[in-house]
Design a protein around this nucleic acid. Structure first.
Lengths: 209, 209, 209, 209
DNA sequence: TCCTAAGCGAGACGGTACGTCTTGTCTTCCA
DNA sequence: TGGAAGACAAGACGTACCGTCTCGCTTAGGA
């Protein structure tokens, strides 16, 4: 019983070292020039051992990113208030991005992994749909596809993220969150036929967040 | 003088065959499993000849895509009316996507080229900024970054494109264009402080387009 | 400790298979039309593995020939009697050539490796100098360069070898050895000022060898 | 008629430039690293033109060497005295080598053309057989193969040449020629059963040459 | 205390694609 | 018509990674 745990700890430690080494290398040199050899050398791990845990570097990235995304998901889901507002959700996203800005910058830049943008896009869309849109849509009788609206929001949000990373995270997360709300919510409400429900909200960042 | 032209024609033919073969293969098998060998075999071209023209398959893709994008750019710039409306511009985009839907589906799917989404995003943003936003912004005294707004629009537009490709191009391009205008323009106008200039437009596709 | 040995055995086996395959191909098709691919296919070895062991086919040949030459060196050095006579040494050489006549014929023919003749020439010269000439020269006060005499002997010996291979190894090795001694020793003795020391030897192969 | 001559002259000029460029490059960089491209660039000739005249660089070498050898053949055949002595013939050879020592050094060194040594060997053997040996053999009733003796002489002569090139052409050609006679003729005469015919010749270089 | 199972390092190996190099052929034009 | 220019097919080269494999070593429980 305990032996199992020790082994698990050992395995976990190995995987952690691989993951850390990989992220460090991505920040330093970009994703696609990195080889499995590079990762294992950096992590002080035998190359064969890498293949005991992952099929290829893409899988390692995928699993490492999953953990990262789940951090954010938890943030969002544990935050008070449901449904969340565009503002509050996006601020969580911006803060998460800011925390890992070096990594995300490297991932979004040329030579990043092929699937990262679309993957993140879909994942944000699903988060927005679950935490914000579903509640709004239930309130009205629109027949617009919820997934489509979610993609629209996620597309916009991701666009802001990319722009933000390009501009040294210049406006504060809260301001950008407010802007996101300004840009997104009127259109959505229009489409859903909601008579300015959120528009009444005074553009006061604190209150919203 | 004439000899030069003949040679150029020959070169152009070779490049065209490579480009065509590449696109065909991308549609059939997805981008990343394709080797230079595959391309040249399909194009009936010697592998070494490939390297006379391109450094690697990424460069071939890049140049081929550029030509594709420029088709669209021309469509948009030759269309009557300046500044363009969100609706008319997006309809051109949707029509362009529809024309090459098999290709774009393959490019956006997992295993597509690493840079495609971001590249297209930036390129759409630049198109929107030049053809639509610039005129609006000059009319008002807002200090919001034009590039940011362009990224927002492009992000949304790309999101709709991806959703559309996933849903068999279900609503007509005109309808999606109208939806795009509905989703985007209120927020932008809000931010720019424009008092519903476009909102007055009756949601009649024909009139807009 | 033992692991190392196992690995070494594995490596040695791989190299042996490459060497064998190479010699077989040389005999069949001549040296210069053989590609690394051909060798590894014949040896059932991955092409990349070839490059783990050798830089190119020339190096493989070099190392394989070295082993061959060392067989002969051992024959000569373990034979009784020092200094050796021209006759006994050359008979060893002829016997060695006869054993591998197919290989040597292929190597000396057009399309053989560029360096083979000169390499073998120098190597024979060194063998002759060490095993035969040195002793003679020490006995007299000549100031003729030993290396020059060695080259002369080796040149003649190699000439006989080439002639012999061209004539289906017709006279027996012993007879050719006797002829070599007849042709070489009077001149050398003349030059060294040795008063017919060997000339007295009755041309009886047994006694000489 | 005259037009033909002009064209021929032009062709000859092209071939001469190729040949000269090739020899120059061989001296500079060794035979085997030279490409057809290199030769034509040095000769200011189009690469395609090379192939109008020669199939490959080996053929160019062969034809160029043939011309060189024929110079020597003429020297030997026009010299007074027949049959030639070992000494006089070898001195011609040494002088010819000395004239072109840079070229021969490059040809005999590693990376030289594969066939050069054997080719030269056979060619020298044939020269010796025709100019020296044939006459001797006719005088006696020996049944030793003339070709074998010729190979022996040529092998020795070539050996001296190689040694000489390695030693900066140190002893004069005349001395080396005398040494060659000393080394070769006693053995040959022994084998042919000739009772010291040439041995009477006073080792006086001038008289011999 | 030894045993044994599992994680791991080391590295040989087969395989695939790469981008480069050189060859020999061809076509078009120029002098 | 000989030569220059240069696109092209063909194919070997040596390199880089990949993913698999076998072999011992270590180590920490369980016998």
């Amino acid at each position: 019983m305990k032996g199992k745990q020790v082994v698990d700890r050992r395995i976990h430690r190995t995987q952690q070292m691989l993951s850390d080494a990989f992220f460090a290398l991505i920040v330093e040199r970009g994703y696609d020039s990195i080889t499995v050899q590079d990762i294992t050398e950096r992590a002080n791990i035998g190359r064969a051992t890498f293949y005991l845990h992952y099929h290829d570097k893409e899988q390692l990235l995928e699993e490492s990113l999953l953990a990262l995304f789940e951090d954010l998901t938890k943030d969002v889901e544990l935050a008070p208030g449901f449904p969340a507002t565009y503002q509050s959700l996006s601020i969580h996203v911006f803060q998460h991005i800011a925390e890992h800005h070096a990594l995300y910058r490297a991932l979004f830049k040329e030579g990043g992994p092929p699937f990262i943008v679309i993957r993140m896009h879909r994942w944000l869309a699903s988060l927005i749909e679950r935490r914000v849109l579903k509640a709004h849509i239930e309130q009205c009788t629109s027949n617009v596809d919820a997934g489509l609206l979610a993609m629209h929001c996620a597309g916009s949000l991701l666009a802001l993220v990319i722009w933000w990373l390009d501009h040294d995270l210049a406006p504060a997360a809260e301001q950008l969150g407010y802007l996101f709300w300004q840009l997104i919510s009127p259109g959505i409400n229009d489409v859903l036929g909601i008579p300015l429900p959120e528009s009444n909200a005074i553009p006061d960042t604190k209150k919203e967040a």
